[in-house]
Design a protein around this nucleic acid. Structure first.
Lengths: 117, 117
DNA sequence: TGAACATATTTACATTTGTTCATATGTATA
DNA sequence: TATACATATGAACAAATGTAAATATGTTCA
């Protein structure tokens, strides 16, 4: 007599999952990574801080658009800011941000290699 | 005579960015990570493969919903599948997927610690 | 082959998300 | 304090995204 699914095993796996709240937060963080403009902003400040106007110049977008995305990035704690007079400089908040960008890029490269075979 | 932005510096940074197509693809991958259900699915199969019905059982969701999300995960090459009779088993596609989940979780923990201070 | 089962797909809908334009806030300095 | 400058915000709209219900596909085995 076999069951469709091994209830005990499924319960074990379900119990081992991180709490819902943590998984929710995790998804929220990745959601912030999931936009081309924001990825570009993060890459722009990967090597050093830039102010809003500079980022807008690099990406050739309006100051308003950049400011909006920077707020989202800052709320998610992916970037931090520092004021110097009337200029506000933005940089990546912690090392994990660069790491995630890096591993994501590696993943893409690996998948591309696989695809070429 | 100072400029608002140092055009040469901005051009240098702009030129150093990965090509647009790559940044687009990167954002697309993270977009797939940016959903609670998909994060849960990936965590469910972190330690070993499961079939659709089992995942549906673990997450207490319909088979249809899980199947939809699995297709999105598979298109993004985040999970792979293997058929055994009529059952299809899903597992993480490559090690980067687990790494990204891991670093994302670390990021959250670090930010939570900062917040508690 | 046909019935039963596991998974996939289609369609339609509601919600979320990104962008733009206009305007507001806050800071430095004359 | 008035002005100029750098950045932030609000509202409105278009586009992308997730979900649910119904149905289709593909596989096994009697």
């Amino acid at each position: 007599m076999t069951e469709l699914t091994d209830k005990k095993k499924m319960t074990r796996i379900r119990t081992a999952l991180p709490p819902d709240e943590e998984l929710y937060d995790l998804a929220e963080v990745f959601k912030v990574f999931g936009d081309q403009t924001r990825v570009k902003i993060m890459y722009s400040i990967l090597k050093g801080e830039l102010c809003v106007a500079e980022i807008a110049d690099v990406l050739d977008m309006t100051q308003s658009a950049i400011s909006h995305q920077l707020r989202i990035l800052k709320n998610a704690k992916l970037v931090k800011s520092r004021r110097d007079g009337k200029v506000i400089y933005y940089s990546l908040d912690d090392d994990h941000v660069a790491q995630i960008l890096q591993i994501g890029t590696e993943h893409l490269e690996e998948q591309n290699e696989k695809g070429e075979e």
